[in-house]
Design a protein around this nucleic acid. Sequence first.
DNA 1: CTTCCTTTGAAGTCC
DNA 2: GGACTTCAAAGGAAG
Length: 528
Amino acid sequence: MPQLNGGGGDELGANDELISFKDEGEQEEKISENVSAERDLDDVKSSLVNESENNSSSSDSEVSQTPPRADRPLRRQQDGGFFKSPHYPGYPFLMIPDLGNPYLSNSALSPSLYTRCTFLLNFPLLAIPPSSPDKNVKSNAGFNPSNKVPVVQHAHMHPLTPLITYSNEHFSPGTPPAHLSPEILDPKTGIPRTPHPSELSPYYPLSPGAMGQIPHPLGWLVPQQGQPMYPITAGGFRHPYQALAMNASMSSLVSSRFSPHIVPHHPHGLHQTGIPHPAIVSPAIKQEPNGELSPSPVSTKKEEDKKPHIKKPLNAFMLYMKEMRAKVVAECTLKESAAINQILGRRWHSLSREEQAKYYELARKERQLHSQLYPGWSARDNYGKRKKRKRDNKTDSTPEDFSARNKKPCVQYLPQEKMIDSPASSHGSMLDSPATPSVALASPAAPAPTHSEQAQPLSLTTKPDRHHHFPLSSGRQSTPPLLSRPLPLASLHASLLSPPSPFHQAALHSHHALFQSQPLSLVTKSAD
DNA sequence: CTTCCTTTGAAGTCC
DNA sequence: GGACTTCAAAGGAAG
């Protein structure tokens, strides 16, 4: 359990330490790679175009390509993939695929597999000279080349803010009241108390003045207009969270902002705290999506069934996924979450320490808040709520078992290579928490992508067998990953697996500039 | 309609 | 304390 910041702002210092080592070579490497990437861009483009044109008669040697859907790129442009995710925090620019990154040249992706990725075609931003990312950021802040990029963005919007939301619909980049800073409940007394400065995240070093401008990191707690958004039904509010009590005028606001799913109108829909936290998913409500919450005649349900389902707080990776999914989906025609998640998993490993640290910090706050909202909640409460997942193939999984379980053979996937190791798997996720910078510093920068992936066979399904490097890590992956259903992963553009591009770094730069007093060396370098 | 897939991390259980 | 299990999100695919 990550401890709270012990030393008031120490984490910042820690982050600085983290940052100092970071990307010294990586960023330069990226830059140089980008140079060469430009050189390859034409090839990539032409390759992409050619294959896009020809993929209707895709080669039979290709890896299980799903039938090409000519409508995909067009449709995506029409419906606007980015807007599909209302929470998408986005940066005011596109993440330009790092064509020179090791994933491109080293990954399991064949260039011929770009076919399903249309981002190059969809994002004319690629034509923008990469010389001045900052300029691009500004100049493109309101530019929406394909109606896929959110152009309306609060100037001070925290890129990660929406991640805090348990449900997208709760988030609104409004201006939170300063009094809604994370309220700390004394775990013993249950009495709200002002959080000690050391308990506040370094990522939200918000002065009281700044609080009025920057959306609350815990967005779901903060409504538009700076009003608390806890819906209170009559007598429903009996949470010790007194400081979060809302005035009566909120109910109307809440009613308009919350769907019936979220704003239950009967006591059963409320968590025992009286606060319909977005993490709460009431089974009863789920059953009546139209909002008719009339007491079920079948009230014979067990008390447990009536309990709202309090979801687990999202971990760092989940938060990252929520943010990045839309981007990946927008950049690629792939829609299968399983495939997207593989990409995201790799990109996660490719994140720098401080980038991951942000999510770890957010996740820590999530857990903290979650534990405050639901003091008695335990992850165990949700055990068994889901259907029993089929047993992991890691245990006594024999080839027979595997083939029996899986409907499709994965013949096209090469045998799992032991060395397949995602770039950052060298320790990336082992970065438990920013609170333990010493551990994080123990080994050099995560990304160092490479050698191992260079030899990686043509398969994206080769999930890094971290076990080889982290015998202490979860045994979940103790056996080579087996793919039961061949996903068209190989058709992903390698760049989707790449670490954030310099443009992304620039976004982080902007972000940090807004939210941190100290500049990050990493972005400073990248700005060069 | 339900389950699977896939990812990482947190937290739970079991030995 | 290590190994293992479950669940969190997501949405297309498959049964």
